[in-house]
Design a protein around this nucleic acid. Sequence first.
DNA 1: GCGTCCAGGTCTACC
DNA 2: GGTAGACCTGGACGC
Length: 307
Amino acid sequence: MSKQLTTAKLALPLPDGFDFWRTVYSHGWCSLLPFRVDKTLETFSRLLRLKDGTLVDCTMKPFKNRLRVEASSRSTLTKAQELETVALLSTGLRLGEDFTAFHAEARKHTEYRWIARAGVGRLLRAPKAFEDLIKMMCTTNCSWSLTTIMTNNLIGELGEELSDGLKAFPTPEAIAGMSEKSMRKTIRAGYRSPYIIECAKRVASGELDVESWRTSVLSTEDLFHLVRNVKGMGPYAAGNLLRLLGRYNHLALDSWVRTQYARLHYRGRKVSDRTIERAYEQYGRWRGLFFWLEMTRYWFDKKFPDW
DNA sequence: GCGTCCAGGTCTACC
DNA sequence: GGTAGACCTGGACGC
């Protein structure tokens, strides 16, 4: 970290049963900038951009029932900035969400008792819904390595720098200001380019309030249609984004989970989407979360073999 | 090193 | 409402 930065030590209280690393590794977001995992130091970092434009790099490490945070910025953070920093981290780690009902439901099913035992269910998300939306578009119709390339390029080209090449996720205004030609050439977003730019323009102009989606009182289906109304967000991307918005009704089927489901339940034989959907109907509003956790359980088994 | 083929979701035009 | 084809890239593969 550059010498001109000042560091404040902050702490977040953690809810009972919260497992920091199982939340961090809940899906692939932790490996996409501006998230960073340091396996040697056992820390998880995230560069934040506050409302007033202040950049704060936060390095997190759990200790007992608290999360220790070292928050580095160009100038000493005010109390309000510290509170905003804590709020953004809390949102990303879903600390304010209540999973009691979900774990109670998990205990009813023998095959899912491990979920309640391990306290999993929180899915890591970006501090802002806009970032989740753009990244989700970058996961469509491509390999994970290309998603990583597009994300890195977006941040590298358009992100504001704190220090030493450490950059924030770009604002809607920054993305909206890029030409489609540049988006294709430098970001390598291909045919997604016009969708990403159009979305950023709608958000920057205020026409599309994606941040309100996280607290929306709309039904899940109405919210799903709202997300689908964004060009580039098909059923897979919208279903996955809904999970990050705290709605778990959709399975968000893609080629990887279809293959994984077939491997787990049909010895690799191809299964129709309808068959998969039917298998999870019994889990009601939590079906998308049970499905995701079941498909990815082996990640946790490898990372946390003592479960 | 080069060319070819394929996988990966979404959109649009068409039936 | 369902379907086919185009979109674009990285990676695998064969030569």
